[in-house]
Computed example of a mutant assay.
Amino acid sequence: MKIGIIGAGFIGSALAVRLTSLGHSVLIANSRGPETLGEVAQKTGATPATAYEAARYGEITVVTIPLKNIPELPKDLFEGVSAGVPVIDTSNYYPMLRDGQIPELESGDLTESEWVQAHLGRPVVKVFNNILADDLEKLGKPAGTPGRIALPVAGDEAVAKQQVMALVEELGFDTVDGGNLHESWRQQPGTPCYLANMPAAELQQQLASLGTVRTDAQHAQFLANHAAQEKQMAAQGIKL
């Protein structure tokens, strides 16, 4: 496949390494221009490109940049790109460590990926947000391996979701349908599914236990959980 990746950070680079190792052709872009991506290209095997080139390259596009930078992407980034090309969103909201306060995400009216989708003007599929980049690169296993990690995949477009699930499976992870994009709060930071590396049966059970409609109590609890996680990450000197 031809796959475009917009964002050359931890997740983008991990995906590029795995995808090229599987024989896919990958273009990778960042905000500073392809001339700054020589080291990334050498490490990952991906070809440096502009964001426009990556968005128009192939059968799947991945957007994996800091959430606060989403509004800075060109408004016409996906103009003319076939509606049949799924767009993957890997974003997470880190108000303390990186993104600052985004009122729509504090209120709980929108999920992170609904906010991204509104800015991109394009349906997105949410995946790869609840696993560490190092685990994404190194912990994929063949189908049927006991304890194989499962990743939730959420989105509103059934065909796009199935295409993305097939790619996730190829990368070495089971998939669990995470519902529509409004239900993707269940895989956001602060929830039990975040960075938990669960097998499929456990992940399915956990998602089911949360329900599909986020209550005010759940929203408050997960915000508190995430704030505690961010403080711990800051104390450990973790960079995003």
Rank of each mutant, 00 (worst) to 15 (best):
W115F: 14
A54H: 06
Q218A: 14
I102L: 11
L110I: 12
G140M: 12
K2F: 07
Q206C: 14
V164E: 00
Q204D: 05
Q42A: 15
L37V: 04
Y52H: 14
Q162H: 03
A41C: 03
R122C: 07
A158M: 01
V17N: 11
T61M: 11
Q229C: 04
A160M: 07
V127S: 01
R186K: 14
T145L: 06
N129Q: 00
V17R: 15
E169Y: 03
N30R: 04
Q188K: 07
T191G: 01
L22D: 04
T44I: 13
T64D: 10
A41W: 01
V125A: 06
G80W: 07
T50S: 10
L120C: 10
G140P: 13
G80M: 05
Q42L: 14
L181G: 01
Q163M: 11
P103D: 10
E137W: 06
F78I: 08
S21P: 10
G140Y: 12
M198Y: 12
T44M: 08
L195E: 06
Q42V: 10
T44W: 11
L167Q: 02
E35C: 04
H182P: 06
P142V: 02
Y94G: 02
S184D: 10
G121Q: 14
F78M: 07
E114I: 09
F222W: 15
P86E: 07
A235L: 12
K2H: 13
G121P: 13
G100K: 09
S113M: 04
Q218Y: 11
A16N: 06
A234Q: 15
I11R: 06
S13N: 11
A234V: 12
G144S: 06
L210T: 02
P189H: 05
E39I: 10
L105I: 08
R148W: 09
R148P: 08
A224K: 09
L97F: 01
A46Y: 02
A49E: 05
V17F: 11
G58C: 02
H119Y: 12
Q221K: 13
K141S: 14
N129W: 00
T90V: 06
N130L: 00
L19H: 04
G140R: 08
G155P: 04
S184T: 13
I60V: 15
R186C: 05
A220D: 12
M165G: 00
P123I: 11
L105R: 09
I60F: 09
L120T: 05
K231Y: 11
V159A: 13
G9S: 13
A220N: 10
D216R: 07
V125Y: 05
N30H: 07
M233I: 04
L19T: 05
N69E: 15
G23R: 08
I11C: 04
V17T: 15
E114F: 07
I65H: 02
G155A: 03
F10S: 14
P48S: 09
